[in-house]
């Protein structure tokens, strides 16, 4: 089975600081690949390289989309989501707080709607083809809202939702662009145990039903160990371990990195 994402010898230097040092790993379709490591290990930097915020010093990142091998280096800005079909979330919540829950999901379907509406011209004229497309977009949003149980709050401002719901909405919004790869940066941060169990359920659903590969950065080990198919452990920008969740739990290197070594 060919992998969805292959990162090859990725190195990112900021002046003298080596944030990522010769990192290689693969992520598979329909799997959750977790990247863990102590603070400052370079986890978010990996995401920033993947999503075009940083240009890696050396190394390659390939996304395999239906037989095509796409280099992520070539894409920046909106093309990451639009062309490469990589979606991401951030450590802090970045919903559009002054827009309704439904609108937040519709924004993610902007490109399809924009095309269908002839760059808003048909939209202004309210043509039938546009209305149908818009109905489809609304239906898709409703489908996702049903899954996270927020249908009754569709018209409320996203900023008024409880924290846990905002987290889920953010993930679902990323799913609305129909990504091949979903990068989640600490989605469980600040969630209570009940909310984080719901999050696990949502991520499993996405993995199994939507055939999307998930790349996950997380500190909450109950989440990581509960749902990961594959774990990559980073420390000081280097990969120190790679394996299944159980293997990782018992790995000597990983325990040393997190807890330190006896003198």
């Amino acid at each position: 089975m060919s992998s969805l994402l292959s990162v090859e010898n990725l190195t990112m230097k900021f002046g003298g600081l080596v944030a990522i040092d010769d990192l290689s790993f693969n992520a598979q379709n329909n799997q959750i690949t977790s990247i863990i490591g102590p603070n400052g290990a370079g986890k978010t930097t990996v995401f920033n390289c993947l999503t075009g915020f940083y240009k890696p010093t050396t190394g390659q990142m390939y996304l395999h989309k239906d037989e095509n091998k796409v280099s992520l280096r070539k894409y920046t800005d909106f093309k990451i989501a639009h062309v490469a079909k990589v979606a991401r979330t951030f450590q802090n919540i970045r919903l559009f707080p002054a827009m309704s829950v439904l609108e937040n999901l519709l924004v993610a379907q902007h490109n399809e709607l924009m095309f269908a509406s002839g760059y808003s011209l048909y939209g202004l004229l309210n043509l039938k083809s546009y209305r149908e497309k818009e109905k489809q977009a609304v239906d898709k949003s409703k489908y996702w809202l049903d899954i996270i149980g927020l249908t009754h709050r569709a018209d409320d401002n996203a900023g008024d939702l409880p924290y846990g719901d905002q987290r889920k909405l953010e993930i679902v919004r990323a799913m609305c662009i129909e990504p091949k790869l979903l990068c989640l940066d600490e989605p469980a941060a600040g969630l209570n145990p009940k909310e984080s169990a719901e999050l696990n359920k949502l991520l499993k659903f996405i993995k199994n039903e939507k055939k999307t590969g998930i790349l996950l950065i997380e500190h909450d080990m109950s989440v990581v160990m509960g749902i990961s198919d594959h774990v990559v452990v980073l420390n000081y920008g280097k990969k120190i371990f790679e394996g299944t969740a159980d293997q990782t739990k018992n790995s000597k290197e990983v325990i040393e990195a997190y807890l330190g070594v006896d003198e």
Partner: peptide, 18 residues
Amino acid sequence: RAQRACEQDRTMTALLGI
């Protein structure tokens, strides 16, 4: 909608493919 999204968070708007 896209304009209002840009108003609130340009980086995130770009990451949604706009």
